[in-house]
Structure formats: C-alpha cells, structure tokens
Design a protein around this nucleic acid. Sequence first.
DNA 1: CTGAAAGCGCTTACAG
DNA 2: CTGAAAGCGCTTACAG
Lengths: 357, 357
Amino acid sequence: MHRRPTAKDVAEIAGVSRSAVSMVLNGRGAGNIAADKQTAVRAAAEQLGYTPDSVARSLRLQRTRTVGVVTDAIATSPFGGRLLEGAIAAAERHGYVLVVMDTHFDAAREEGAYRTLVDRRVDALLYAAMSYSRYRSPEVLQRTPSALANCVDSAGAVLGFVPDEVAGASAAAQVLVDAGHREVVLLAGDRQNETYDDLLAVPRREAGYRRALEAAGVRWQEPVRGGWEVRPGYEAALAVLQRDDRPTALLCGNDRVAAGAVLAACHLGLRVPQDVSIVGYDDDENFAAPMVPPLTTVRLPFREMGERAFEHVLALLADHDAPSPAGVGRGLEQSEVAVALECPLVERGSVAPPLTR
Amino acid sequence: MHRRPTAKDVAEIAGVSRSAVSMVLNGRGAGNIAADKQTAVRAAAEQLGYTPDSVARSLRLQRTRTVGVVTDAIATSPFGGRLLEGAIAAAERHGYVLVVMDTHFDAAREEGAYRTLVDRRVDALLYAAMSYSRYRSPEVLQRTPSALANCVDSAGAVLGFVPDEVAGASAAAQVLVDAGHREVVLLAGDRQNETYDDLLAVPRREAGYRRALEAAGVRWQEPVRGGWEVRPGYEAALAVLQRDDRPTALLCGNDRVAAGAVLAACHLGLRVPQDVSIVGYDDDENFAAPMVPPLTTVRLPFREMGERAFEHVLALLADHDAPSPAGVGRGLEQSEVAVALECPLVERGSVAPPLTR
DNA sequence: CTGAAAGCGCTTACAG
DNA sequence: CTGAAAGCGCTTACAG
C-alpha cells in the first residue's frame, strides 16, 4: 500500500505548479491556465488516479461537506432506515456525506454526539426522531445550520419536517365514509409510551379522523384505547367486535393495531373486509402490504422527511455563504417552525362497503 | 457566531507556546511541562471551551478516526438499524465516528461510495448486507483495514461476521423435539429472492433443522416452499394444515412466515399452540414478541455483527500501527474467513406438546 | 498566463 | 523543561 498521489506528484508529471493543478481540477482553469497545460494536468491526474485529499481541503476551505445526524434510536422502528436513506441519497446528490450517531434517548450521549460532531467541523446538523414528537432544540442546533426530521422544535428555533397527520387521517376516514360506513370506531393507544411523553401523531390523527367523519355526518364515537402494538390492537378489537352495536369498520391508530384487529376478527369468525372493514396507518412495510388481506392505510413520508431536512440545511448553508442582498432570503418566518409533508393514502384490500343488515 | 478558539488562543492565555498546549492536552505533559504550566493550560482551555480541531488533527496525524460503512439497503429490513446501532455504539466507545452510505444494490453507487470514502480518508471500511449472503469484496476492501457484516467474502480476503445459522436452526428444531413432536414440517422460501441470488441462511437453517430432527429420530419431511413473507407463509400453512397427515408442528423459515402460519391456523379454527406448535426465526421485533401468541423463535445477532465487525477493523488498525514482532499477529488464517455468532433461542408461547390423538 | 508564498490548525521532532 | 520550525495536503490571493 504505497503513498497516495498528491497534487505535487501531478504537478511534476504535468510540468506545472501545484497551484495550476488545483485550478484546473477545480474548474477554474479556463482563462487562467493555457489549454495545453490543462490537458497535461488532467492526463497526469488520470494516470496517477489522483483525487484531492478531502481532509486537507476541509482544513483549507473551512468546510467539510459533512453533515452530522443525530437520532434518538435508529432501530426502534422499521422507519428509521427510510429516513436515513432519504437523507443519505440527498447528501450523495450534493457531494455531502453523513456521519450518523444514535443516542438511545440518553441525554449524556446526545450531548456527547453534538460535541464530537462540532469538533469534527460538520457543516450542518440534523436531528431525527423515530416518533413524531416535540424536541427541545439544544443551543448548538440554533447556532449551526440545522433542521429536524419527524419532530417540531418546542423552542421554535429550528425548522422541522413532519408528516401532515391530520390530512392523512382525514383521508383514511374518508375512505370508510365513501364506502358507506356509518358505524366506525377508532382503536388507538395513548399519547405517551415508554420513550415519548408527547406523541404528536395521536391528537392530530384523531382530529383528522374526526373531521372527516363529522363532515360526513357520521357519529363520532369515543376511541377505544389499548396501545400501539399488535396485541393491544387484538384485545381492543376483540372487545369492540363483540359489542351489540358492533361497528362496521375499524379505524386503527397504526398498522400494528390493525394487524391485531385482523387477527381478532379472524378469531371471531368475521371476514375482513366483508364483515368488518379495517384501515391502518403508517404503511408499515411489515404489516400493511403483507397482511392478509393487505391493509388500506396511509403512508408516512419518512424518506421525504430525511430528504427535505437535508435539503433545508443545504439551503441554509448556501445563504450562509452568499447572504442575499437585503439580508433577507430563505430565512425562517417566525411562524414557520415546521413543514407538514403529505401522507398519501394507499388503498389495498381491507375496506369494503358494509353489509346491509 | 464568533471564531472557534484555537490552540494559539489557549497558549496566549496560559502564557505558553502552542506546542505546550498540545502536549498537555494530549496527556504528554508529565515530565515535559512544568506542573504549574500544565494547570494554566488546562484552565485556559476550560475557560475558552477549547477542543482541538479534528480535521486539522486528521491532516497532521494522517488518520481520521472515521470508518466508512457501506450497506446494500439500510431500510429493507427492520434489522439494518440494529446492525448500525451496534457499530455506532462500538465506534463511540473508541472515539470513532461512522459515515454511512447506502447503495441500494446499485453497483455504480457502491463504487462511488467507496471512492468518496477513500477520498475522505476513512481509516477503515465496513460492508454490511441486509440478508446473509455472499459478497465479492472489491479490491479497495482488500487493501484497507475492513470487515464484512452479515455476509461472507467470496474472494476469501475479508473477514465476515455472520450468524451461526445451523446452530440456531438446530436449537429451534430441538425445542419441538423436546416438546414431543414427531410430525414436523418446514415452511420456507427459496434460496433466491428479488435482491439476493444466494441467500446463505436457507441451506444452513435447513441443515440445522434436519440435523436436530434426525438426531432425535424424527422423520425429515420435504420442506414446503412458498416465500419469505406473511402471505406465502399463510398459504403454505393453509395447505399443510389441511393434509390428512397434518403435522403437529411447523418450523417456519422466518417470523413473517410464522405470522402467516398463525393466521392460517386461525382461519382453520386451529389453536396455537394447543393444536399446532409454531416456531419462527429471526426474532423480528415486528412479528415475534408482538404476535398472538408470542412466537418462540431464534434471535439473529445483528447488533453483535455490527459491533464485532467494528471491533475487528479496530484490531486491524492497531496491528497496522504497531505490527507484532514476527510479522504475525491477529492476521487472518487462510481458513478463517468468517466468524459465526450465536443465534440464541428465545422461547415464548407458540410451542406446546402435541395433542395425543 | 504562471509560480512562490501564505495559511487552514494541529503535532512532533529538534534545538536550545 | 520549553519554544521555534517544519510539515500534513490543499487553495487562494498576490507578484511577476
């Protein structure tokens, strides 16, 4: 493993100075360097397989083209990867690279993560939450170009990219309304769980469901609260589906709950969707499409949150380098602390018109 | 946002030279710098919140304490995150940082990923596959300290950390044997899928199942092959459970298939585990524990693969810096191209003794 | 149009 | 025991 070629090596072969090779390779050759020397430089670089050392460049340019992403728990949900994929793809398109850290909800690890990222001179910071929640942005985020994904800043300083839950839930409920259902109950969990004490998706989904139902003149029934997993969904559905006034459709707070509901229907000898319609939420790849029957659900825009958050910091960086004339520009409006991304409805096989009784 | 403090700033406050602050802060002060000056340096650094610039350090030291990880598809499975978490945690413990890239099975993106990682002077490289498979290590991995996670190098050059599938499957089958089952059929998929043409888990799991069954004198039945998802599992189970010689237990190639089998049993009015026992594989957080009943399964050591692969490159790096006396050391044995990590059995509620008929 | 010099922020021999 | 100098590999004014 011999020494990597440097600009000096290229310069010697091409018979020019190091400055010349830098200019040529950075596209500033035209008008500065004679055409034949440019050719010589490119040839030499090619021959040697020369490519400039990023760390030297970073030191000189005072920017690393690296963005740090800290996440509360990549692996908690099947979605973390998608968010990361979106951010990675966007970074790749722009010649950036991501260093990712994971805090597992540990404040000390989080602080450490920010510190090492800052020491490593990342150009910008991203914070991503696995569940749609509130996040109090630490000071470092506020003085560095940054963005949040799947959470909103309770300090109101950093822009967050989040799912448009109320529109999504509204669309989910509308599917049921359109199919003719009048007896619909919502199966959901609490606003808190072990790791988040304020799950924003909960009230927003409920608001969306309720809005669509009430707009169609469908009676809003008190939600049945179990939890967010398969088993609570199973148990809640088991109870609801044995009531005298059994609903014709179940609106489930997420796809896991919906999967539990499918199982419960099955245990009660009820067919889905003929006897009971079920709609989920999340488009969880593990539960929605693979279910029997495949679930009608609403897709959470994880990939998009990652992409958009990355692109936002890129814009911030650009403003930074070239502030717009009047000092205004793409800067944040005071009101605009989050942008809501579409949650598209995905219709599959778990909804049918209600049986006329 | 004012200028970050540099060693020079600290030196001025402390009244020493820049070299002195470097020495002190790197723990080489003792015996070189007077005690009171050491104190002064530390105080000044503290006061300024000084912390050395990693990129300058990287340039000077010619190592970045960064390792590049390229993965075929982080988000394809719920496991990708766990592997990454393991690697990130190990990196964090050693003051390293990970830059992660994702190729989505695209050869051009993969090549690009390695190139940018090399340009960025990562100290080592990790390649992680989402399904246990073969990987032909590119040349760059062979001339850089590196390791594979969840795949084995078909070129035999780079050490891979993989699950011990045969032992795991053997344990899964043994649970059934111990419970008294004699009629067991395996529900599984093919050795290929859309993205991998050689899924190593398949033959190994089958070998493990078979070994345990035959050792116990249980007849080995031809596996029923559907696929690796819930629906194929459902369909295969539906067929098998309606046979005249209905087995008393189903050994499922993974937890999704097992979930499908649970659903099929339910549709046929068969109780799990009383009428039919089911065991899965993977300990898929989405399907195993949350299932009704919770699945007995085998855990895939994703976190461990990430950790061990990282630690391996660390060891390689150490050898690199300080080659062992005789030139030998922790180098790879010719035979040792992969280390198999334990897949622990996790017993839950889907296995019971067979009904005596 | 081109090359020599300075400097990004560090660390490590090397003189004193 | 301490400071001045060199140098990691680049890029960008600045002289010529």
